[in-house]
Amino acid sequence: MKIVMVGEAATHREMLAAGLDCPAQFVALPREAHESAAWDAQIEGADVLVSMRFQRSGAAPAFRLLQVPGAGLDGIDFAALPVGATVCNVFEHEIPMAEYALACMLEHQIELADLRARFSTEHWTGAYLKRQPRGELFGKTVVIVGFGRIGQAVATRAQAFGLRIIAISARAEGGRVDGPMDEAYTPGELDQALSRADFVILTCPLNERTRGSFGATQFAAMRQDAVLINIARAAVVDPHALYHALRDNLIAKAYLDVWYRYPRGDTDPVAPAEYRFEDLPNAYCTPHASGWTHGLFERRYAFIAANINRLHQGLPLQNVVTNPRPV
């Protein structure tokens, strides 16, 4: 089996190889080589291409399987795929991403770092006698926009803390949708749900329907004490509306883990966004790390290895996708 691994995926070659039941020839390509003639020559005739992106303006090199090493398909141009190629993705990210979302909500309510900063032996008496009540998650309402694997994983954990779950899903019908929730609405009903939210968590895919769908109108519908958590894709949110909502305190805070621009490699320095969100005191910015755990890669590459084994054996592949489905 000829397996071409692109960019970050190539760093997990040994993890993938450990799960294979067939001989394999590995080719590693840097991400910045994407869409070049040299890149095409390397993958021509490959059995498997492991890459988060596939974009083409001309003829595509032939390969059998594009195994996306994540769930997002916004980097894949399905129309550009070579004839006969199959696309599969892989999940397993919902566990750490849901934990990240809960950590953001807990941090907002408990402010553990601030509590620690105020503690010292010299000021112990005043710190104890003048301590102020803090918030708690119990009884709060969270609106989860996009109720696929990530949204449902967040909801399961949030319910354990006593939060009320409002799901926003294209599959909602009659106020219900499959999964752990109290109420469900369609994307067209989002604005009326936002006014009830203590937290709004974005977990939807990026597609033509969702791109820029969260903007000034949605921020105006949120309460001033509400918090936005974006672990979906940055482009779901209008950057200008987001910056002004935070700068003008239209909402209390935003936790931002996804960005508008990404480097193609070490030699491609880019700013993550047009605005310096990190300079705003109510913006908590992290480098797209919500799902970046050791356990994630162990689970993902075990799944990918099993899928390659199935390809070698002529068995049906798992997680075959054609186009993104609404969540």
Rank of each mutant, 00 (worst) to 15 (best):
L16R: 06
V227W: 00
R209L: 14
A24P: 07
D182C: 04
C88T: 14
P239L: 03
V236W: 01
D257A: 11
E189N: 11
V142E: 03
A101R: 02
V87P: 00
A38Y: 02
N282D: 10
S290N: 13
R325K: 13
Q218S: 09
L65C: 11
G19Q: 05
H12G: 00
S51D: 10
T267W: 08
I231Y: 09
L65M: 07
E278L: 10
P263Q: 10
H93E: 13
D279N: 15
F26E: 04
L280A: 08
N309K: 00
L311W: 08
P82R: 07
L246M: 05
F54W: 15
A117F: 00
R276L: 13
P316R: 01
V27S: 13
A232Y: 03
I251M: 02
M105E: 04
A9W: 06
C204I: 06
L81T: 03
S290L: 11
Q313N: 13
R134T: 13
H244D: 15
T286S: 15
V48S: 07
R209W: 10
F54Q: 00
V236D: 03
S290R: 10
R64H: 12
R223I: 04
A24D: 05
F161E: 02
P82T: 06
A17W: 09
N323D: 12
R209M: 13
A216E: 15
H240S: 14
P281G: 10
E8H: 14
R276D: 15
L102I: 14
R31F: 15
